[in-house]
Design a protein around this nucleic acid. Structure first.
Lengths: 102, 102
DNA sequence: ATAGTTTATCGTGAAAAAACGATGATTAAC
DNA sequence: GTTAATCATCGTTTTTTCACGATAAACTAT
């Protein structure tokens, strides 16, 4: 079976750092992670108060950050508490540091 | 005149780091900046040898990195020599460092 | 002048991102 | 059981990204 005719040929590290970078590639998401870092955590509602975007839009951005692994959400009915995913955050930090200190 | 009904309200810093992150948000572009950092500089042709993508596609990615300010190109006919834009690279480094050390 | 090399740009198509309103799901409080 | 609150998901539209081939631009070398 011939699959992947066009080889991808990126290292895991390259893909990982690109994924982190992509997740941080929007000013709203920068705002969000900065907020989550300053306060230890916060709810979606807190964000909709601060950010002039529709609630559904903010939810989408949170999903993007979550899928990249940079944040995590704890369901705490009827709210959801979002926090930085510390382990992955530090992983991202290390990757960027490695990239810039070549 | 009413313009900008939906206020943007991002700081320059947030926009700047998001722009840098966005430019780094693709594995090929990570590969490219890594290459440009290891060798001091290189030509587009060198990249097309290493990366299995069409020449026009690579040129597009170089353009994205250039517009973000992370690299610069010196026309050296008939070739173009690409290098890291050192000042902006260090600016990006500082911004990411600031983001991660909150 | 002709031909060759190198790179950017144009035009296109497919896929993903960004934004919104509306709807659903879940739980708390009454 | 109704109602209110909180958040995610769905469906949609618009814009942007990614990739390609083809063409154009610029300079070398013959």
């Amino acid at each position: 079976m011939s699959r992947t005719l066009a080889k991808t040929n990126y290292t895991d590290e390259e893909q990982q750092i690109a994924a982190f970078a992509k997740a941080l590639g929007h000013p709203v998401r920068i705002q969000i992670v900065k907020l989550l870092n300053s306060q230890s955590c916060c709810h979606t509602g807190d964000l909709t108060d601060v950010i002039p975007l529709a609630q559904s839009t903010i939810s989408q951005h949170l999903k993007a950050l979550k899928e990249a692994g940079l944040i995590q959400g704890e369901i705490l009915p009827p709210k959801v508490k979002y926090c930085i995913h510390k382990a992955n955050w530090e992983k991202a930090e290390a990757l960027f540091q490695g990239l810039f200190n070549l």
